[in-house]
Amino acid sequence: MIAGTVLAEMLREMGITHVVWLPDSTLGQWETALDSAAEFKLIRVAREAEAWAVASGLFLGGARPLVIMQCTGLFDSGDSLRNATIDYELPLFAIIGQRNGFNPEVRDSARDYAEPLLRAWGLSYRTIARPDQLSELSTHYKACQATRRPGAILLVEGGA
């Protein structure tokens, strides 16, 4: 598991101004670190589909948002995500937790449909399964911003 303080430091280096999120039990362990960071604000939403719209508004206003949610939230996000990244071509970026990614023996459609859905929505993504792969977040974010493409990190998780 990536430590929240390590992630927060990377987000600071990336110039992220707002983290828009709805956590799960894995991502939620970052809450204290993300909420206490001075360089960016943590914005909580009631439903994941909102997160893309809040991030869109932030982006249009000149901020540098990052969306964080579990893959079940990605499934909920469809129309909002489509509108922002396809209709308006906004290069939004997210960390998506892949529930039960480390537990292939567990029957979980959320895990199985995460990657097909990322591809379906045209999100260029990289997978992070270990803390030593965290630099991929910064690298891929910068690449997506440079080419104005929406993108994501698929973060492999244990349970819910």
Binding site: T17, H18, A53, L58, N83
Partner: peptide
């Protein structure tokens, strides 16, 4: 989703 767009804009500006 428009109120959420507005929320992001209000925070950024």
């Amino acid at each position: 989703q428009l109120p959420a767009y507005g929320l992001g804009l209000a925070l950024a500006q």
